[in-house]
Nucleic acid binder design. Structure first.
Lengths: 226, 226
DNA sequence: TATTGGAATATTGCATACACATTGGCTGCA
DNA sequence: TGCAGCCAATGTGTATGCAATATTCCAATA
């Protein structure tokens, strides 16, 4: 009986719960410090405690929830300060990646990066935020790959995945895609010159600007919390 | 001595399994690509599949094992190259931390860092590797704290925890503690001067030297794999 | 009245049982 | 002989039950 047009068992139940909880936490629907009772969550999602537990474990690894042995899980404090802290790490990681990439990328990789950047011009011109978001992802992904360090690629992707929920609202800010693309242009220039330190500096600024676009959102979370 | 893994239920069963598996993977007892059958592992540890699954999930998050949905877990490829990659990320994270710390640490934190460094002189002189290992941990931990970014502290600690198994054999290398302490001295100097970029550079060198101490070990893993 | 001890409750940690997907092999047909 | 499709076996994903431990509340005592 698949009356509901669900995505089917293509996605694991525990993954669905994980994504749903991550969304509720990042949007502020679940307030910081809230107890995450396994049984209750299981009831809410029509699942048993087992997939809920798996989801909570993974969320704990990403820092969205805090697990205390035999004392259950609570939503991690998600103050504006903590969101900024997460962005700062994100920015530093991105800066590290582009610094390494600027030194290590092959000529082919460099021109591929430039190509992605040029493709994004259309998306910005048409105001297609979703398309720009995809290209934005590919842009940063190309930089990760440019480090020629598979472990860094994995971890950077994982971190970016964690921040995805925050980022969603971010690009909608008026004028943000244009400015983002302009900053990408500067990044491409620095990478082309092989100037890793400069690229890292620009990336920090780029990420800081992106996080600033979230300030209103952060304050909103703040208000809900107290 | 509470440093010894307590047989009591003080530590969660899933954590014991996680640590044991991490050890076996990093020491090469479990070869890359090996299937990690949940039932078999459960039998080996005298546990059921449930805590084994939790352990595997956490190991997957740290990159030691790879999980393919409905197809089980396998030991991640652990070539010498991959070990070096993990160390590179570790080094970059440490460098990032000390760069931020050199700029942000309070005077109290700076002198506390220097104090830890001075305390370690005794341990080195007595050849007490375990004691030096503890102080080494506290030294790096103080640097994490110095970033004044709680999220970075968490993630840096988690990463260092993952590398712990590798690090264990590392300090045993003859002369390594002396050299390590000398390098720490230079790091303290740079932090005292507030020279973040220089501290970061020194930290990368420090971590690189530490990883070099593992080269023999890495080759050994390599040989076992093929 | 405040504090402490203990019992009751609730919730996690672990074990076991079941359902279903994936895989490998086997059979039948081209 | 080779390939397609089916079937069984293996093993993961999920549900449920049990045991151990943390929390809470109440009562007894100082």
């Amino acid at each position: 009986m698949k009356s509901e047009p669900d995505v089917g068992p293509a996605m694991l139940l525990s993954d669905r719960i994980r994504l749903a909880l991550a969304d509720e936490i990042t949007t502020g629907a679940l307030l910081p410090g809230a107890q995450l009772d396994e049984q209750l969550l299981g009831d809410r999602f029509g699942a048993s405690r087992t997939p809920v537990r798996e989801a909570l474990r993974q969320l704990a690894a990403s820092g969205l929830v805090e697990m205390r042995p035999r004392r259950g899980a609570v939503v991690a404090e998600m103050t504006a300060e903590r969101i900024f802290e997460m962005f700062e790490l994100s920015a530093e990681i991105e800066a590290m990646c582009i610094r390494l990439a600027a030194w290590r990328m092959t000529p082919v990789e460099r021109s591929a990066l430039r190509q992605i950047h040029e493709d994004s011009a259309f998306a910005v011109a048409r105001g297609d935020v979703d398309e720009y978001d995809r290209l934005n992802w590919r842009f940063h992904d190309a930089i990760y790959q440019g480090t020629h360090n598979a472990y860094i690629v994995e971890q950077a992707k994982a971190l970016r995945e964690r921040m995805a929920a925050f980022r969603r609202a971010q690009l909608r800010k008026s004028g943000r895609p244009e400015r983002s693309r302009h900053e990408h242009g500067e990044l491409v220039e620095a990478v082309m010159r092989g100037d890793g330190e400069e690229a890292a500096k620009l990336m920090r600024a780029h990420m800081f600007n992106a996080s600033s676009a979230l300030e209103g959102f952060a304050r909103q979370v703040e208000k809900k919390s107290y």
